[in-house]
């Protein structure tokens, strides 16, 4: 009994791992792998954002800014100054953590929509700097990024690897690496949720007054989760930069921030696997809608609106609820 939640977590992780392993059977070309790898990296970002939005109930409209810092810090330092990728990526994450703490600490003492305003502003400022400081970031045209490497071992989509006697293409290697990152991101997120820290966070969303009278320093916990979610974004931003090999300021833009938070809400707030689904759907939807050409934008907006109106809890929680209803009905019928 005690472990029902733990079993659930394990089940989720195993299912996710199986999906990652099976998916290659349905992917036939490098483009599919490229898409799947991007989805995995973005999904890991969103899993972190969900800790803030879904569990602690705080809105960030600037997470792409943190993603952008991670990506550009890694890109600039590894290409212009020949820093090694892994320490650079960790340093970027630490930097973002500090920025998030400085911004979050005073703002999260307030109640209301203030974090959304502050994050919107921070995100914009980051994007503007990246756009304007072309001498180091390449400006609106973007910049190339060296491939990721650890201890002299290089991970590139264009390499060939042999693994246990098998020949593996670089893009496949990246896919599995990104899958591993996603699993790790989910594992850590679940560890946070199912802990005293996680309970404190969820109580902030459930009843902030209750949280305070049982001794939760709500401002501190909100800042903590804000920092954690920003660090997630920075790490994944760095990986994204190394993977794609070329980045533009768009990844730090307000539009991208909106896409990220939409993935959370669409997939299902406070549902770790839901937001992964949200990331996949929102990444794939434009591909599907591209066939409609000038109707694309209108249809995207319409789908977004309708989903949120009719499934305000998000895709996965709604589906789970339907499934549960169906199963219990079946049970009743069987008993009758």
């Amino acid at each position: 009994m005690l472990n029902s939640f733990m079993q659930m977590r394990l089940k989720g992780l195993v299912i996710l791992a199986v999906i990652i392993l099976i998916l290659p059977l349905f992917m036939s070309n490098p483009f599919h792998y490229d898409m799947a790898t991007q989805i995995a990296i973005i999904a890991a970002t969103v899993v972190g954002l969900n800790l803030l939005v879904g569990y602690a109930g705080q809105i960030s409209l600037g997470h792409a800014g943190f993603f952008g810092i991670g990506a550009y810090f890694s890109a600039v330092m590894t290409s212009n100054y020949d820093w090694p990728p892994l320490p650079t990526l960790l340093l970027a994450a630490a930097l973002v953590g500090v920025i998030a703490w400085i911004v979050g600490r005073p703002i999260l003492k307030l109640k209301g929509h203030y974090l959304s305003m502050a994050t919107l502003a921070v995100g914009f400022i980051i994007a503007i700097i990246i756009n304007n400081e072309g001498w180091i970031t390449g400006g609106p045209d973007g910049m190339p990024v060296p491939s990721f490497s650890v201890f002299g071992w290089e991970l590139s989509s264009f390499n060939q690897y042999s693994f246990l006697g098998m020949e593996v293409n670089g893009y496949k290697a990246w896919y599995f690496f990104a899958g591993l990152l996603l699993l790790l991101a989910v594992w850590v997120a679940q560890n946070i949720i199912d802990s005293p820290i996680g309970r404190a966070l969820r109580s902030v969303h459930g009843s902030e007054v209750a949280a305070r009278v049982v001794g939760v320093d709500t401002a501190r916990y909100k800042s903590l989760v804000f920092v954690i979610s920003a660090v997630y974004a920075s790490l994944m931003g760095s990986f994204y930069a190394h993977f794609t090999g070329f980045i533009t300021p768009h990844i730090a833009s307000f539009e991208h921030s909106i896409v990220l938070i939409t993935m959370v809400v669409l997939g299902g707030m406070a549902s770790t696997f839901g937001v992964i689904l949200g990331a996949a759907v929102l990444k794939l939807l434009p591909q599907v809608l591209a066939d409609f050409q000038e109707l694309e934008m209108m249809m995207f907006g319409l789908i977004l609106m309708l989903t949120m109106i009719f499934m305000p809890k998000g895709l996965l929680p709604t589906a789970q609820k339907l499934l549960k209803k169906k199963m219990s009905r079946k049970k009743v019928e069987e008993q009758a």
Binding site: A200, R202, H205, G206, S207, V209, A210, A211, V213, V216
Partner: peptide, 15 residues
């Protein structure tokens, strides 16, 4: 002031 987004037991554990 009960946290409806948690289980009954988690509410007490929060205490």
């Amino acid at each position: 002031q009960i946290c409806m987004n948690m289980t009954a037991l988690e509410n007490v554990m929060l205490g």
